[in-house]
Design a protein around this nucleic acid. Structure first.
Lengths: 223, 223
DNA sequence: ATAAAAATTTAGACAAATCTAAAAAAATGG
DNA sequence: CCATTTTTTTAGATTTGTCTAAATTTTTAT
């Protein structure tokens, strides 16, 4: 079934809001979508008629199984396109969101799956958010810091705690940037420093202080 | 300025129809867009108000300079996306048109230009049609056969004349497929056979008969 | 418990893009 | 050259997604 970009945006917004609260209110949706509450009410009726959500007036809204499935498909597309833009077309991680908002509504599912393959079935987008797979499974990712990663674990830089010029200079020197992939090579108990490796550069040692400042996203299913 | 997908489709259709006839009629547009003539009239008024075309009632339509510019931008996007789908995502050349119809309406011009760069500033799409460059210049391409290409000229296979099983077997054996890039290495006057080279394979010799059956698109500006 | 505040829905309108049916203009062919 | 056919436009509706203003329901706080 095909849905308009507008409907897809509603479904996606409801899905995201549902992460926090089980029940999603009309007003919170209106705010998220930057639209009038009355417009939301109208749309909810249409989406209910299409069985994408449960809705009783004044009672808030909740996605059905097929609504959730649709939401995950859209999120999958969005995140794969973001990664494509950053990884293949050299966009900065901050500039890709708006473009991906448009690309996520391209309908061909064969296109998404081929894109997934082209990117090597990635687990996270450039912001560190998990990418659902073809079956809609969302990989469990852990958001923490380099100081908590296991030895030989792979991760992606998702944020920096202390953004002082001194810290940024150190990070830049070691090619540690938002979105960078890194591997923890060795942990040293003596001073809790960590040796990390970034693609294309020799391994470097970073102090516990620095390791605690580098937020990373990594897969949480090592078996 | 941003235009709806619908408006962009009108502009593109007018541009294509204008290649044949200077003046484009309401009915021919309606047929091309599979829409009612009355809808075309309505839209033409809107597009005229936006200075994209000249239009007097009952007099047909003609793109202005800015209308032409927009049309070329859209065609550029369409053809770059088609090439991307075939070259990077392994789609067949026959399946890409509909997907590119959607992708061509993604607005970011930075995206198109990055895509162009990513693909190596190609001159033609998988169907052999020329891709306009960033400035809107359309490369002059010649549609002919391998038997007419100059020595050391590069081209892309755009079609096959005799599609008998025997011919197709020969072509497949030599990795000659629609969309393939090839170079004419040497022409032999003795039997008018031609030595051609495809990427990733050793050069092969093909008879005049076969060379006349391979339709190619190649740049016509050797200088 | 109930009055005020907040949230939500209804009612009525509008813009974009489309349609059908009818009217008007242009083209054509004895 | 003028009657018929063809093309094009106008008129009036429809659908989708949106809006504002007013009405209604729920929540909250005294």
């Amino acid at each position: 079934m095909k849905y308009s970009a507008s409907k897809e945006n509603y479904i996606k917004a409801i899905f995201h809001l549902q992460q926090e609260l089980e029940q999603v209110s009309t007003n919170s949706l209106a705010e998220a979508l930057e639209t009038a509450p009355a417009s939301v009410t109208d749309m909810l009726k249409k989406l209910k008629a299409q069985q994408l959500l449960q809705y009783e007036r004044y009672r808030g809204v909740r996605l059905t199984a097929s609504g959730k499935k649709l939401a995950i498909q859209i999120i999958r597309k969005h995140r794969l396109w973001e990664l494509f833009l950053v990884e293949k077309l050299q966009f900065g991680w901050e500039e890709v969101h708006d473009i991906a908002e448009e690309l996520e509504h391209i309908s061909s599912s064969k296109l998404v799956d081929r894109l997934d393959e082209f990117l090597g079935f990635p687990k996270a987008d450039p912001h560190g958010d998990p990418i659902p797979d073809m079956q809609g499974r969302i990989p469990a990712l852990r958001q923490s810091t380099v100081s908590e990663m296991p030895e030989s674990g792979f991760g992606r830089v998702s944020g920096i705690g202390d953004q002082s010029p001194a810290m940024l200079a150190l990070l830049r020197h070691n090619h540690i940037a938002l979105g960078a992939h890194l591997q923890v090579r060795k942990r040293f108990e003596a001073d809790r420093s960590v040796e990390i490796k970034l693609a294309g550069h020799p391994a470097v040692n970073i102090s516990e202080h620095v390791a605690k400042n580098i937020r990373v996203t990594y897969e949480n299913n090592p078996q």
